[in-house]
Design a protein around this nucleic acid. Structure first.
Lengths: 134, 134
DNA sequence: TCGTTTTCTTGAATCATTCAGATTTAGGGT
DNA sequence: ACCCTAAATCTGAATGATTCAAGAAAACGA
């Protein structure tokens, strides 16, 4: 299924900007908004930064992209959705690396005592220093 | 051991502002900077917002307070440190609730494949809807 | 093709946080 | 007790990511 079908299926209109955003996020390595902005401009020549914000919000709401926000850095996006994987973040360079979850099904972790909360997602971030920064 | 000793032991000077910040963080429920700011003013009358930022940084660096940053909200602080507990965050009201870790020792979780990273901390956030918002 | 609704644009505003420089204070040394 | 110096705090401004607002353009069902 192509990106256009994914968009339509989510009730979103198919636009050049959105297709380029999806491709850019998929091609990049956890790009932030600015990375996506630049990537999209490379592909379609002209987009406004706000269109990128709007579209990323729409795509995120539709579950087509995942948003991660490591402490201290701007929001980053990724195309791997639904597989509930987690992230390794380098304290020095900020690099983000995917880590597969031990368990297969999301949510991979259920708190011992949910305190009455209806939990629907577990967000796990491992902090450390990446190989090239060590 | 009193807060003054904790500060001295960390190589930090003992000031009224810092003592008030520690008490405020301990008394509050994951307060953000502004909550701390107001709490400290209630206790000592006069502090600048920057002093609160500076002191919280110092306390955080010294390991006397923990900093958490749920996506989309300003940084929050808590006094429980070193026990590697995690957090439940309400998607509606933003409330934060502590959850004890299944395992006892930090890091409570070690990624299956650390990809060469020297991992020193695992940050786990559960997202859901709290009892009163359901 | 037309009309409605969504999307995109431009431009400004907001919010948390940080930076800079001057002033004060804590606490060790005399 | 009094200096001295580094650390802490103050005032005031700057930054950077993100959001708001309102008009123009584009998508797509009728």
């Amino acid at each position: 299924m192509g990106d256009d079908d994914l968009l339509r299926q989510a009730g979103l209109r198919v636009t050049a900007a959105r297709l380029a955003i999806m491709r850019t996020v998929r091609a990049g390595d956890h790009p932030d908004v600015d990375d996506v902005y630049r990537g999209v401009r490379d592909r379609v020549g002209q987009v406004s930064l706000q269109a990128v914000y709007d579209s990323l919000h729409a795509l995120h709401r539709a579950g087509l992209v995942r948003k991660i926000e490591p402490m201290g850095s701007p929001a980053r996006y990724e195309a791997r959705v639904g597989d509930n994987h987690h992230h390794l973040v380098c304290r020095k360079c900020g690099a983000v690396t995917d880590v597969d979850c031990v368990k297969g099904e999301p949510p991979c972790i259920t708190p011992v005592d949910a305190a009455g909360y209806a939990v629907d997602e577990a967000d796990v971030t491992f902090w450390g220093v990446c190989p090239s920064c060590q």
